[in-house]
């Protein structure tokens, strides 16, 4: 595999996403998947947006999806909501799989 994939996990203030990020990174390391997740609050995500390969939104900010989708589209970066159940159960492995599936499908979201 080539370069590391960068996942941006967006939540409201970076609290819950921080925890989930850690779990995703753990899972990635376990499985040997070259992915690094980073947490960010919705108000700071603008600057990071063009620098990543895939974006996931946490459920509590689902109402921002449409706005962000446009911005992500402009950079051709896949974006989706975190699988809500995986989020609630803080299942890093599952979110990792979701992210990988998104990255491998660049032309639809």
């Amino acid at each position: 595999m080539g370069r590391t994939i960068r996942l941006l996990l967006v939540c409201s203030w970076g609290a819950s996403s921080g925890v989930l990020c850690r779990k995703i990174n753990d899972a990635a390391q376990d499985k040997g998947v070259p992915l690094v997740a980073e947490a960010v609050g919705i108000h700071e995500c603008q600057a990071k947006l063009p620098l990543v390969d895939v974006i996931l939104l946490e459920p509590q900010i689902g109402h921002h999806k449409r706005d962000l989708q446009k911005k992500a589209d402009a950079h051709a970066i896949p974006l989706a909501m975190v699988n809500p159940v995986a989020f609630a159960t803080m299942n890093g492995e599952k979110v990792l799989e979701q992210a990988m599936a998104l990255v491998s499908i660049p032309f639809s979201s």
């Binding site: 203030w13 609290a15 819950s16 921080g18 925890v19 909501m81 809500p84 989020f87």
Partner: peptide
């Protein structure tokens, strides 16, 4: 979904 997100947010915070 959003409700769940809010509670998780509160819990972790």
């Amino acid at each position: 979904e959003r409700e769940m997100g809010m509670w998780m947010h509160v819990g972790i915070y």
